[in-house]
Each structure stands twice: as C-alpha cells, then as structure tokens.
Computed example of a mutant assay.
Amino acid sequence: MFDKLPELIDPIYSVNHNKHFVGRVNQARLKRLADMVLSADREVEVQLDFYYDRALRFPAFVMKLKTNLNLQCQRSLKPFDYAVETEVKGIFTESMALIDDLPADIEVYDLEGGKVSPLGWIEDELLLCVPIAPIDEQNSMDYENDSIPDVVAKETVLQEEAFKKPNPFAVLQGLKK
C-alpha cells in the first residue's frame, strides 16, 4: 500500500478501471486549512474509491477522510484536538443541466479537463468540517461567575420584604369606603 496520494488523478480513467487510492497527506500542504488550525503537522488519512454508479448513471467516487485538527477552544482559549472522520460521495459531469434529479447528499464535480488534484477535494471537505466556534467539551473556564446567584438571591429577598411592608395606600382605601 502506498502512503502517498498521486498529485493528479484522471477521474474518467480511474472510474473505468475502478481505481482505489489510499494514502496520507500532511495538513501543512493544505494552505487554507493550515491557516485555520494552530498546528498543521498532522496527517490526513485519505481513501478514494472510483466507480461507475449504475443507479445514478454517472461516474462517481467515495472519499473517506480521517484526521485530528488542532484548534483553539473558544471557551477556555486552550488548544485541543478535534477529531474529524467524514465521508463524501461525488459524481462527475460535463454538463450541470444533467444533475437536476440527483439526491442532495451527492457532491457534483464539473469535468473541465483531464486530470484533477485530489488535494483540493480533501481541503474543501476538511474546511467544511471545521466548526465555526470550536469548543472543547472537556475543558472548563478558569473562573466561575458567582455574581449571578447573588443577584437572584437579592431580588428574592427584596420581593419578600416588599410583601412584608404595609401598603402606604391602605389608608386611602379606608377613606374610600
């Protein structure tokens, strides 16, 4: 088994020959992803399977990705590892007019030329997996906000005292009668 993906893949040739690629890509090679993570020294495990989808009647592929992204927790501001394991199914087409009846979970790739770089597909899919505000559920904040229970307790005491005080308008109620 090769540990390196090819730089360029001919999708139609790969579909016609049911090609299967397994390899690793360093996150540092994915420039847009490297800008979003704290440390881009991790490996991305990639599995690409090409085939002809008889049900959809299109050349297709399945890409599986597995990696850990080093992100900064927005709650504690500490780095943490965010595990990503995703699978995407895509088809190739020469005309976008042919894709009207496809299911929503199928990615569509336009065949512009001969060979394509799988690094773009990998990077796009990993960017979709990065959360907008990453939070590590195992981290907690370094401080506790104790003022909120005190405010609630003070409001409760003030409300109880208000019920104990005599109503200043009670005298007027007596005069009205």
Score class of each variant (00 low, 15 high):
D3L: 08
D3C: 07
D3I: 07
K4W: 10
L5T: 01
L5V: 10
E7T: 14
E7R: 11
L8H: 03
D10L: 06
K19Y: 04
V22C: 02
G23C: 03
R24V: 04
N26H: 09
N26D: 10
R29K: 08
L30P: 07
K31V: 12
R32N: 12
R32Q: 12
L33S: 10
D35N: 15
A40F: 04
A40L: 13
R42K: 06
R42W: 01
E43Q: 06
Q47M: 12
Q47S: 09
L48D: 03
F50T: 02
R54P: 00
A55Y: 02
F58A: 04
A60C: 05
A60N: 03
F61P: 07
F61K: 06
V62H: 01
K64Y: 01
K64T: 15
L65Q: 02
T67S: 14
L69V: 06
L71Q: 07
Q72N: 10
C73R: 00
Q74V: 02
Q74W: 08
Q74F: 04
R75Y: 05
S76V: 12
A83K: 06
E85N: 08
T86F: 04
V88M: 01
G90C: 02
G90P: 00
G90E: 00
I91N: 03
E94P: 00
S95A: 13
M96P: 03
A97M: 11
L98R: 13
L98S: 10
D100I: 11
D100P: 01
D101P: 00
D101I: 00
P103I: 00
V108K: 14
V108Q: 10
G113E: 15
G120K: 11
W121P: 06
W121H: 14
W121N: 05
I122K: 03
I122P: 02
E123T: 12
D124T: 14
E125G: 04
E125R: 07
L126C: 14
L127F: 12
L127Y: 13
C129D: 10
A133C: 01
I135H: 06
I135S: 02
I135D: 00
Q138N: 01
S140F: 07
M141V: 13
M141K: 14
M141R: 09
D142F: 14
Y143C: 02
Y143K: 07
D146Y: 15
D146R: 14
S147T: 13
I148F: 09
K154L: 07
K154C: 01
E155Q: 08
E155H: 10
T156F: 14
T156C: 02
V157Q: 11
V157P: 00
V157D: 07
A162V: 03
A162C: 05
F163E: 11
K164G: 00
K164D: 08
K165C: 00
N167K: 09
P168S: 10
F169L: 15
F169V: 09
L175D: 12
K176D: 06
K177D: 08
K177P: 01
